[in-house]
Design a protein around this nucleic acid. Sequence first.
DNA 1: ATTTAATATTGCAATATTACGATAATATTT
DNA 2: AAATATTATCGTAATATTGCAATATTAAAT
Lengths: 107, 107
Amino acid sequence: MGVSKRHIHSVSVNQLADLAKVLSHPARIAILNYIGDCDGCLCKDISEKIRLSQPTTSQHLQIIKKSGLLKSNYSGKSQYYKINPDRLATLKNLFQEFFETTEKKCS
Amino acid sequence: MGVSKRHIHSVSVNQLADLAKVLSHPARIAILNYIGDCDGCLCKDISEKIRLSQPTTSQHLQIIKKSGLLKSNYSGKSQYYKINPDRLATLKNLFQEFFETTEKKCS
DNA sequence: ATTTAATATTGCAATATTACGATAATATTT
DNA sequence: AAATATTATCGTAATATTGCAATATTAAAT
């Protein structure tokens, strides 16, 4: 039937999968790398850097933003994207926890 | 044009995205959790546990297997899936490295 | 008010993913 | 050899994702 059957899985399992999905596209990894480098980036600059069109870049930015990984502050007509360090730390812990739990189980 | 433009990104960026994609479906997270628990699981049992059909479960298993995260040893007609601890450790390190590098950049 | 610049949204085409029934393949057991 | 049990593959339908052109929105500057 083609639909992801989310409802049969636990909340925490779905959460981790959702976060992994944010990282599952190379453009989004590249965007996070670049924003980390410049700390306060314009969509236009990001789109030039990663060589995707402005609309496509904007869409990826929205997806990352929805996960909480990005903050942005408008300054005039420009929007400066920054990484949300708190959310990044949360993500890091969630993934680490998953890997360590899985590691312990199979040792 | 609707195709993922992998070629414009670096190899390491694509690799991380590919691995995240393996984890980006709740069924695959659930499978990894379950296999960790029993350490040597049959596809049939997994499919019952995660409540997806046998063909669907088998497909997910192939996707995880292609990433190197699963080993399997045939024992008669049954195939016992196990987690590959070496590959799991590699994955853990790759994600940790990504998070820590990104953290350092934006501090 | 008009122009300009940056970003977001819409609409659409191409492709990928998800899921399952039917079936094939594999290996044991009778 | 036939029956049984487990897993993989094929075919297909439904849905999701990716990407861009065109357009809309937003806010500053002239």
